[in-house]
């Protein structure tokens, strides 16, 4: 028996909007730790890891570990029927081939049940080793989204370079090239407006902008984004999900041919 009650149901709506472009079908895993997902895009270039810790739910009952295969587009269709202020509860019986999404309006005057068919998905779970990153950039998520969008109108790839001068995003295309430098800036009114650069050593990596733009679908989840870079490793683009967890996007770099 599984029963997860999330008072801030809008978080789950935003999570689905953040990942459904990248991944078509995925297994949602429930355990005592929380509600999680790990999936790659169809070309195995990017990986998304979601964790919503059990403590973040108002009620969390998971009698035994459960893996539920879902088509994310269908989950999104279901969750779009929930109001932004609704409380969302996920329910599944042991051995059932369906999951039920229950939506409750804040004043309890409307309660809806949406039952969705589960699917069998063969998925490979990957071990993500703990890594020391050469550079970690924390910046406003809207700023990062703007940069990715702007650069993708010029080129297909972005070179992200971190030096003691700041973080530089560069692209080049048929019509010309573009460079955007963001310097560390902690003298802001609100902490979420700060750009903080922690650099152990300079690093420069090239990535496909198409994927970066897809990751920025998570922007409504968090005012800030953290970008962790090391040479020879996929970049990690992380958005916190309130105080209950995170979405981490891993993207393999472009490498010299």
């Amino acid at each position: 028996m599984l029963e997860l009650r999330l008072v801030q149901g809008s978080l789950l709506k935003k999570v689905l909007e953040a990942i459904k472009e990248l991944v078509t079908d995925a297994n949602f895993d429930c355990s005592a730790t929380g509600f999680s997902l790990q999936a790659m895009d169809s070309s195995h270039v990017a990986l998304v890891a979601l964790l919503l810790r059990s403590e973040g739910f108002e009620h969390y009952r998971c009698d035994r570990n459960l893996s539920m295969g879902m088509n994310l587009n269908n989950v999104s269709k279901m969750l779009r029927c929930a109001g932004n202020d609704d409380i969302i509860t996920l329910k599944a019986d042991d051995g059932s081939d369906t999951v039920t999404f229950m939506f409750e309006s804040p004043n309890q005057d409307k309660i809806a049940d949406f039952e969705m068919k589960l699917m069998d998905i063969d998925s490979e779970h990957l071990g993500i080793p703990e890594a020391e990153y050469h550079a970690i950039v924390k910046m406003p998520s809207a700023e990062f989204a703007r940069i990715c969008k702007d650069l993708s109108s010029i080129g297909d790839t972005v070179v992200i370079s971190v030096t003691k001068e700041g973080v530089k995003f560069s692209t080049r295309g048929d019509i010309g090239n573009a460079n955007i430098v963001c310097r560390q800036n902690t003298t802001v009114d609100k902490p979420e407006e700060a750009t903080i650069i922690e650099m152990q050593e300079p690093v420069s990596l090239t990535f496909a902008l198409r994927y970066m733009n897809s990751f920025t679908k998570a922007t409504p989840l968090s005012n800030t984004v953290t970008i962790s870079l090391s040479s020879e490793l996929p970049v990690v683009v992380e958005y916190k999900v309130a105080d209950m967890g995170y979405i981490r996007f891993y993207l393999a770099p472009k490498i010299e041919d």
Partner: peptide, 14 residues
């Protein structure tokens, strides 16, 4: 010239 890397060459199946 660059080519796209693959996640599976960085993270191993468990």
């Amino acid at each position: 010239d660059t080519k796209q890397g693959n996640i599976l060459s960085f993270f191993k199946k468990v």
